[in-house]
């Protein structure tokens, strides 16, 4: 069995990945545009009857205020570890074949994808449930921070409070 591989960048703007091929768990933190087929292919399996793919796209408003641009910061080594933990939990709980969690970092254009989640399983029900639960856990626990730039300034958002967050 090959050991899990991880590449943790030294520079702040490098992409980082963690893959456990034996477990079929795939984590990606990337400054590049997300590719639908790349995420789906990570969990593709001849044993699976289903792949559920979730795409989170960035909205142009927050509480009716226009968002000009937004960007994501991340504590990369800790976040890789957290996402791998979430992936393992969800995979075990829902008896999945594979799971991929991908989050984009840096500046993301409005309407572009910031998060991809792909899960594969034998049947559709556990895949739907697993996909939804994976997203909720990522939003609650992954060490990633969104900064929204409004016409009158910018703010760091907090998912926990659901508020506009701390003004810069």
């Amino acid at each position: 069995m090959p050991p899990p591989t991880a590449s943790v960048p030294g520079a702040l703007s490098e992409n980082a990945t963690f893959s456990d091929a034996a477990e079929n768990i795939h984590i990606r933190l990337t400054y590049d545009s997300l590719s639908l087929s790349t995420t789906a292919d990570l969990v593709r399996s001849p044993s699976a009857g289903v792949i559920v793919l979730f795409l989170g796209t960035t909205r142009d408003t927050f509480s009716d205020l226009p968002v000009m641009t937004l960007s994501y910061g991340c504590y990369v080594p800790l976040c890789l570890r957290m996402l791998a933990m979430i992936a393992r939990e969800i995979k075990k709980k829902h008896n999945l074949y594979g799971i991929a969690l991908t989050h984009r970092l840096g500046e993301v254009g409005v309407g572009e994808e910031s998060v991809h989640i792909a899960v594969s399983s034998k049947h559709r029900k556990e895949a739907w449930l697993a996909g939804e639960e994976a997203l909720e856990e990522v939003k609650k626990r992954a060490e990633i921070w969104k900064r929204e730039v409004f016409q009158d300034g910018s703010a760091w958002r907090s998912n926990r409070d659901g508020e506009r967050g701390v003004r810069v």
């Binding site: 989170g56 997203l135 921070w145 969104k146 760091w156 958002r157 998912n159």
Partner: peptide
């Protein structure tokens, strides 16, 4: 050491 403010992935 790192200070981890409330997160906002997604």
């Amino acid at each position: 050491v790192a200070i981890i403010p409330p997160v906002s992935a997604g």
